[in-house]
């Protein structure tokens, strides 16, 4: 076992909604628990998942999301009404609470504890006027080559 190269997984997280923050964090923390070296590369909206001002309050977008569960059937266009994003987010959080699911910050803490590499894309930061100081602790700055360097030696590469 000890002679074997450790397994690796690289994930690109490109979406910043609550529902899209979970898959990278769940897979990364679980991989780390399975002794897999893991990196999440945050780009575009995915950067919100490591933005310290936002990551505890990510939202669900009910509009253009016909899979969004609703207590009463309604046309998807209703999702454009003011307050629907907040309502949808509240519903999703209550569904997660019902099954005892960890919050995004809780999962993030687990990932960092288990040494998941967190890399945030430099152009995204610059174009959105953010700096590394806006990111949670433990995140590093990197670029496409950084991801590729890790990903070329990875057994699993995912774009989320």
């Amino acid at each position: 076992m000890s002679e074997e190269k450790p397994k690796r997984m690289a994930i690109i997280a490109s979406k910043g909604t609550l529902d899209m923050a979970y898959p990278p964090l769940i897979l990364a923390s679980t991989a780390a628990a399975m002794d897999v070296e893991t990196m999440i590369f945050y780009t575009f909206y995915g950067v919100d998942i490591v933005n310290k001002h936002k990551y505890a309050n990510l939202k669900v977008a009910p509009i253009a999301n016909p899979a969004m569960p609703s207590p009463v059937p309604m046309p998807n266009i209703v999702g454009m009404l003011p307050g629907m994003t907040a309502l949808g987010t509240m519903m999703m959080k209550s569904m997660m609470g019902k099954i005892n699911w960890p919050s995004v910050p809780e999962l993030m803490e687990v990932c960092l504890e288990m040494d998941v590499k967190m890399v945030v894309c430099t152009p995204t930061l610059e174009m959105t006027d953010l700096t590394i100081d806006d990111m949670i602790e433990g995140v590093k700055i990197g670029g496409a080559a950084d991801y590729l360097d890790f990903g070329l030696d990875a057994n699993i590469n995912l774009f989320i």
Partner: peptide, 14 residues
């Protein structure tokens, strides 16, 4: 008991 994926795996590893 009562925990859902991924928590059982994470907590078992811990």
């Amino acid at each position: 008991k009562g925990l859902n994926c991924p928590m059982p795996v994470l907590k078992t590893k811990k």
